[in-house]
Write a protein that binds this DNA or RNA. Sequence first.
DNA 1: ATGCCTCGCATCGCGAGA
Length: 267
Amino acid sequence: MKIATYNVNGIGGRLPILLKWLALAEPDIVVLQELKAPQEAFPREAVEAAGYQAIWHGQSRWNGVALLSRVGEIHETRRGLPGDPKDEQSRYIEAAVGGVLIAGLYLPNGNPRPGPKFEYKLDWMARLDAHLQTLVDLKAPVVVLGDFNVIPTDEDVYKPERWLTDALFAPEARAAYQRLLDQGWTDAIRHLHPKETIYTFWHYWRGSFERNAGIRIDHLLLNKPAKKLLKAAEVDLRPRGWEKTSDHTPVWIELAEPGKRKRAKEG
DNA sequence: ATGCCTCGCATCGCGAGA
């Protein structure tokens, strides 16, 4: 089962990019971030024609997340992160699909730092921490994936010294990300590629992608049952090189089918 | 220290992204 995350940076203008990539990569489950479209503007017909069911949480102009599946029914378990009834930003969607609990998120950017946006980021991460604590010990495989807007370490950024004051690389944000891992989550890309230079975002400016001047901020976290099923974890660099593309590129994992071993024993 | 590039929304500039 191939599970992917992709910050599309606007579902309206990037729909051709998304459809091209779905046909090329054939992911089974995909979470999307930054739809930048109101609820009624999601291109449901086009996504269904591509073979995917979808649920989504839109918002005019900013944010917006979606979950796509071509492997059966999507059983939505939550939209929006608990802990702040006044938070109206569309940044979290969660569902059971194909025997896996999928939590798709778009974590706040947090710039400029310091300031109210950075405080909102840290508050959001604290709420995420509390919620993920309720998911990490589930017996079922759980995958938490999306645009975390956190550069975890010096190895995840082209020029660490230029990001020291940025909200994505701030000590508080990195510490909050580390606390998530300390709950018992595994960063799938780093688990399988501990030493490689791997980025998932490159600015549009100054040929950043061509120079590979990027950062790694799109992550897939696995609880222990999901980690046992992990077969592969990769960044798909192809879409970032296309015309009129997102500034992020998709990241995906391959999981063995949940219960496959059990069925084999029985058979 | 700042802009670079791109988008949506609504014009012809601004806020936001990271």
